[in-house]
């Protein structure tokens, strides 16, 4: 049957398949297309013709959004906070995972389950006590405190993925290192962590996207516009200047660009990283 000419029915099926997929693709891409074309339109033009790009683009929306919405400051705050939390979660997670994957001591299984169970904690459940204690300690508007908070919620996933990966390492790896006289720390940082790079990268991508997109923590713990994170700056820009549609659209485009770029550049890795929580990485 391999070289037979295709029937008319086959061609209709093919066409139907692609017509359907293209329709879904349009629905998926439209909101982003809408944000892009609207971000260079004047306020009235955005809704008078939402479907086609403008013939006379205006770029003032961007500087205005950046200035009044503090988008530039919160953009860099978000990069700083996200990267720091991802790094601390990666390091502390790798250290703990190494112990949980390879070492023998009483209570190991319990500690593993205890940490991994943290994936089930809804952050809403702990927001009131955290606000209570951070307020008491005067730690609102405090970036290091926020970084550690984010870290705490990324550790369970990181340990889950990385421990699973390290369990597959043969003992011979460390035997060679021990014969060479390497200490535990040296073995961990020079041998185990580099070998775990695939799992660490997957977990870190997952953590990065989660923190970058988080709304609730900055909503509660950051009060000043100067220290704010991107998701919330965007939300409050809309709340305060909701009728500046062009500005809101420009702010949206700025906030989605990094994640879109990251996804386009490392598509497979991002998909794997995001799935790592669902299916062992």
């Amino acid at each position: 049957m391999n070289k037979r000419r295709h029937s008319t029915k086959w061609y209709f099926l093919q066409m139907g398949y692609y017509a359907f997929m293209i329709l879904v693709a349009i629905i998926m891409a439209f909101p982003i297309y809408f944000a892009l074309i609207s971000s260079v339109k004047g306020n009235t033009e955005i809704f008078s013709n939402p479907f086609v790009p403008t013939v006379s683009p205006v770029f003032e929306n961007y500087p205005r959004a950046i200035k009044t919405g503090h988008i530039d400051k919160s953009f860099f705050n978000t990069i700083y906070i996200t990267l720091s939390a991802v790094l601390i979660a990666m390091l502390s997670g790798a250290m703990a995972s190494y112990i949980l994957a390879k070492f023998r001591f009483r209570g190991r299984a319990f500690i593993y389950v205890f940490v991994v169970a943290g994936m089930m904690i809804p952050i809403q459940t702990i927001i009131i006590p955290l606000a209570f204690y951070l307020g008491k300690l005067g730690l609102f508007d405090n970036h290091p405190a926020l970084i550690l908070l984010f870290t705490a919620f990324q550790i369970p996933m990181t340990v889950f993925v990385v421990t699973g990966f390290m369990k597959g390492f043969p003992h011979e790896i460390e035997e060679a290192a021990v014969i060479d006289g390497a200490t535990h720390s040296r073995t961990l940082f020079m041998i185990i962590i580099p070998l775990s790079a695939p799992a660490l990268v997957s977990a870190s991508i997952f953590n990065f996207i989660n923190i970058w997109n988080n709304l609730l923590f900055p909503l509660i713990f950051i009060r000043s516009a100067e220290k704010q994170m991107l998701a919330l700056s965007l939300q409050s820009f809309f709340a305060e200047r909701g009728s500046d549609y062009g500005g809101v659209m420009a702010a949206i485009v700025i906030s989605i660009t990094p994640t879109i770029l990251a996804y386009v550049m490392m598509q497979e890795r991002v998909e794997m990283g995001l799935m790592a929580g669902a299916v062992k990485g």
């Binding site: 250290m95 904690i121 459940t125 702990i126 369970p156 961990l188």
Partner: peptide, 30 residues
Amino acid sequence: YYSNKRIVLLFLLPALVIYVGLAVYPIVQS
């Protein structure tokens, strides 16, 4: 090498302190 108690404690500590202090303890408090 695999049963060095001091190393077990030392390597587990950072993750456990952050996780227990900022995620587990607040649940109890809640």
